[in-house]
């Protein structure tokens, strides 16, 4: 699943413009305050002011009193719209939702919840990572809405969200207001799993992995499970397998499941990343087959267990190793 996405090899995020002050998180909430908002006319704004100058000159030239009045009304409109544009972005409260961990190469999706605590609605708010795709939302008065921003992950470990650029040109597109929000949001990037062909170490074999049984009893038949590569032929229930499709292995009470040790030293890659990659693939496979597995890394080892939590724990350990 990870390799289905083709990344341009030269992909790089442009560095954020540091001369703009960014709003930072207080109590995990970012408030777009007065100090963080910047405003400039758009090119429509410039065109508008040009037209106003034209109208003013015309009014002077033809001594059109009402021409003055209308020119000034439009000038007032432009000025007021500047305030409204500013107001459309100001005082928004941004909270980052936790980003779900992804595998390296996949798209990390950061979700921002933007709350509007004022009693006027906000329209056409853009949010984007610098240089990235933007998301547009409206936010109702006293309401909130969420923006989804994506970032392509490259390598394992913590991926920090770059500063987010919020902007708007509502209501009349004459002004562009923007602000940067600095967040400490991070997304955990699991290592890129190697190719699926790298098979799981055998539960019975020595060296590469070892079997650990809590109680080595064969006494109490508990049920069947599907055959996995490396299961002892003695355990295959041939009778049952002939009735069902595929091989079935007998399981006994007290054994629970076969216990795998996924050992860093058993991997064959030429460098660290390849080895981690292989371990990741093994964790995926083991989890898919619902095996009980443990992880043994140079500085850390995780006791064998099953379940989503354990799965994420193992992948986290691999990601930040």
């Amino acid at each position: 699943m990870a390799n289905s996405l083709n990344l341009p090899s030269d992909f790089k995020l442009s560095s954020p413009k540091t001369w703009f002050r960014a709003a930072t998180a207080v109590n995990s909430t970012v408030l777009l305050g007065r100090k963080h908002l910047y405003i400039l006319p758009t090119r429509f704004g410039w065109l508008y002011s040009l037209l106003l100058v034209g109208l003013l000159v015309g009014s002077i030239n033809y001594s059109l009193s009402l021409g003055f009045a209308m020119t000034f009304l439009l000038a007032g409109l432009g000025t007021i719209s500047m305030l409204h544009t500013w107001r459309n972005l100001a005082y928004l409260k941004i909270t980052f939702r936790r980003a779900k961990p992804v595998f390296a190469g996949e798209i990390a999706q950061f979700e921002l919840v933007v709350a509007n605590e004022n009693n006027f609605a906000r329209y056409n708010i853009f949010a984007s990572f610098t240089g990235g795709e933007s998301d547009v939302q409206d936010i109702a008065a006293l309401g909130e809405n969420s923006f989804k921003l994506s970032l392509i992950s490259q390598k394992r470990g913590w991926l920090s969200a770059p500063r987010v650029r919020f902007s708007t040109e509502f209501p009349v597109s004459l002004f562009h207001v923007w602000a940067y929000a600095e967040t400490k949001s991070q997304c955990l990037i699991y290592p890129n799993p190697g190719l699926p062909s790298q098979r799981l170490p055998s539960a019975d074999a020595d060296g590469a992995s070892g079997q650990l049984s809590s109680s080595q009893g064969d006494e109490d038949f508990a049920g069947h499970r599907h055959y996995q590569f490396g299961d002892s032929p003695k355990r295959v229930d041939w009778k049952a397998s002939s009735r069902e499709q595929g091989l079935l292995v007998k399981q006994f009470q007290g054994e629970a499941t076969s216990t795998l040790w996924l050992d860093f030293n058993a991997t064959t890659g030429s460098n660290l990343e390849q080895r981690i990659s292989q371990l990741t693939r093994w964790v995926l496979e083991a989890d898919k087959q619902a095996l009980k597995y443990g992880l043994r890394l140079p500085q850390q080892s995780i006791q064998p267990s099953t379940g989503r939590n354990h799965y994420h724990q193992c992948l986290t350990a691999l990601a930040i190793m």
Binding site: S28, R98, A99
Partner: peptide, 8 residues
């Protein structure tokens, strides 16, 4: 609890 990055 759903938004905070402290929890899984």
């Amino acid at each position: 609890s759903r938004q905070s990055s402290h929890f899984n």
